[in-house]
Nucleic acid binder design. Structure first.
Lengths: 117, 117
DNA sequence: ATGAACTATAAACTCAGGTTTATAGCAAGA
DNA sequence: TCTTGCTATAAACCTGAGTTTATAGTTCAT
């Protein structure tokens, strides 16, 4: 597969695919070069990139993911990173619940912001 | 109150207070100038800014808030903006719930990402 | 009355996560 | 063959939400 195929199958712009590679987000065995230096991707890249999209949409940064992808990290460390992220998400969910209450308070005229607004 | 007092009472850096003002986030009747052009703030600014902090932490952008603060908008429109934001937060909460499931799937070795990681 | 601390402005810088542009080498069909 | 289209790289640019820097006027305690 060439880069245009991957782009179409994942919905990620070509520029983003190249950018992710620069950021070490693409495992080496998912992409090789042909004799013209064109990128040749393995089929598995598609599922992988879909997972990356999901993880990026969930508070993982590119840097965190590239750490997870790099072979340098022990399984135990990687597991901890995921568990920590789940906790982070819990915190965000709690914060969002409070936020909704605050917004409802504004709608009911109970917040100071409302007096200016 | 001068800018340093407001900074201490709200925890917002002085640079941020000036930045918010440039972005039209500070209602005019909360800040005047003295004879030396120093900003003089009304006491109510503190509660107001605390609300702003909360709203910014909840997916409101500076631009959205400055729209809400501006007197140009009708009450009905402002109400709609808050209601829409509550819906946005609902969506984010749903997305986060899915995300936690995905992370747990990874921890159980059920996602494609896991095979590379 | 002088130095430290506070205030002001404009403009440049930061950071993440990309996108755009400029330039150039392959490819494939009419 | 020639043109259109795909690929490559480096480097510049973009957006949001601030922060930092350079420069200058003000105020207060000693």
């Amino acid at each position: 597969m060439k880069i245009n195929d991957v782009s179409k199958l994942t919905g990620l712009p070509i520029s983003t695919l190249r950018f992710y590679e620069r950021k070490n987000l693409i495992p080496e065995n998912f992409v090789k070069r042909d004799e013209n230096n064109y990128r040749i991707y393995a089929e598995e890249i598609v599922d992988f990139l879909n997972d990356v999209k999901t993880l990026l949409s969930v508070n993982f940064s590119i840097e965190e993911l590239s750490l997870l992808v790099s072979q340098q990290q022990s399984y135990e460390l990687k597991k901890k990173i995921f568990e920590l992220k789940i906790k982070e998400i819990d915190d965000i969910q709690n914060q969002l619940s409070k936020s909704k209450k605050f917004l409802n308070a504004i709608l009911e005229g109970k917040a100071s912001f409302q007096t200016k607004c």
